[in-house]
């Protein structure tokens, strides 16, 4: 089972493997973070931001500013740039839906994990790490071998979710490669 998790973890770049476990826990950087007081809360918030995606998080933050302006001046026309181009309404809508959808998925996964997780915080952190494929961040705060607390059935379920969450990245890489091919 552990080997299966290792393979899936490596395939999905999520850092739940024994290999990541042994490497990251030995890093000087990990020890430095611990000495700086890297708490569960800080790690959890970083994991959530990463699971949302930096781009969506930034666009959403800009959209929040826009919503405040619209609250004060309902008829105002507010637009803003990101990466040197104007964002369309559809892109703005898409980013906020992405954020809400990711958070909703994390809450649902937290509920599923709660059937076997040890505590509320474990369930919260693991669900965010699974959705974002960021298990390596949990290793940075010393939470090693977290998947071991689950039954085989739950471990297989987690592996499937890890792969599903990575599909988007694989699709993006594929598209970029195709674009490059076409350009050549």
């Amino acid at each position: 089972m552990q080997t299966f998790i290792d393979i899936i973890s490596v395939l999905s770049f999520s850092g739940f493997s024994r290999f990541a476990d042994s490497v990251i826990s030995k890093l000087a950087f990990t020890k430095m973070l611990a000495s700086f007081g890297m708490t569960d809360a800080i790690a959890w918030i970083i994991i959530i931001i990463l699971s949302i995606g930096i781009n969506d998080a930034i666009i959403c933050a800009k959209n929040v500013g826009r919503s405040f302006i619209l609250k004060l001046h309902p008829k105002a026309v507010v637009s803003f740039k990101y990466k040197k181009r104007l964002l369309s309404n559809s892109e703005l809508e898409q980013s906020s839906i992405n954020v809400l959808f990711t958070l909703a998925c994390e809450l649902v996964l937290t509920f599923i994990l709660s059937f076997e997780a040890a505590s509320v915080s474990d369930a919260l952190m693991l669900s965010a790490a699974i959705i974002g494929n960021d298990g390596w961040l949990l290793l940075l705060i010393g939470k090693t071998n977290l998947l071991a607390q689950f039954s085989y059935g739950m471990q297989i379920f987690i592996c499937i979710v890890l792969l599903l969450c990575r599909v988007n990245l694989i699709r993006t890489i594929k598209t970029k490669l195709e674009l490059k091919k076409n350009a050549l």
């Binding site: 959403c60 959209n63 929040v64 919503s67 839906i97 954020v99 809400l100």
Partner: peptide, 13 residues
């Protein structure tokens, strides 16, 4: 719908 979406995002932030 826009206000609802943004309220939830602000709540989360």
């Amino acid at each position: 719908l826009y206000n609802v979406r943004m309220l939830l995002v602000i709540y989360a932030i």
